[in-house]
């Protein structure tokens, strides 16, 4: 059990997929415009990570080495399609705002990376710990980035999941009328992610000392 928690925590802090390994930057940049999107993307990614980790580590003894990558991709693509169809059927507004980046989770390097580097070499319970750690680490990073982008870029915070379920949390006094639209645009995302990466690197250095 100690091993389980160690593996789980390492995914959040030491090998945080976004802030430390800098994996999965493409969906992080493209989708993190609102907190709703950030959470939606994190949940979809978590589902695919967990599902593929369980399947990959359970079938690892039957998978011939030379076709392991195609097999892992088929497994991952199946889970992505399941997530895609489910969101389209039951939360269509979220599926619309994630758009093409939902099916593109297939090529998100976090998932393939964890399956290849960890899931295919470890027992199922550790693979689950690793997947959960990476998923939570990714979710925390996504929520931080999308929170900053939404608040700075639009001056307000709102959750729009389905029509008629619209929670408007707050509008900032000055930013609300005159938001810094840069942060909604890709350059703003690059700037923010760069600063956050630097911050995490600094924290990591402090910790190791």
């Amino acid at each position: 059990m100690a091993k389980f928690w160690k593996q789980f925590l390492s995914g959040i802090v030491i090998t945080n997929p976004l802030f430390v390994l800098a994996l999965g930057l493409c969906p992080a940049l493209a989708v993190s415009v609102t907190v709703t999107n950030g959470i939606g993307m994190s949940l979809a990614t978590a589902f695919v990570l967990l599902g593929s980790a369980i399947v990959v580590s359970s079938i690892k003894n039957f998978v011939p080495n030379i076709v392991r990558i195609p097999i892992f991709i088929v497994v991952i693509a199946s889970f992505v399609t399941i997530a895609d169809l489910t969101l389209k059927a039951f939360i269509p507004t979220l599926a619309d705002s994630l758009g093409i980046f939902l099916p593109l989770i297939v090529v998100n390097c976090i998932i393939m990376g964890r399956a290849e580097a960890f899931g295919s070499k470890h027992p199922v319970h550790l693979a689950i710990a690793d997947a959960l750690g990476a998923a939570v680490g990714f979710a925390i990073a996504m929520i931080i980035i999308s929170f900053l982008r939404e608040v700075l870029g639009t001056g307000q915070l709102a959750f729009k999941v389905v029509p008629y379920f619209d929670i408007h949390l707050f509008t900032l006094p000055v930013l609300g009328t005159d938001p810094m639209a840069l942060f909604i645009l890709p350059p703003g995302a690059f700037l923010l992610i760069g600063l956050l990466l630097a911050l995490f690197r600094r924290l990591g250095v402090l910790k190791s000392e």
């Binding site: 079938i59 039957f62 011939p64 076709v67 097999i71 088929v74």
Partner: peptide, 8 residues
Amino acid sequence: PILALTVV
């Protein structure tokens, strides 16, 4: 390998 991939 062919069989494994086909089954998956």
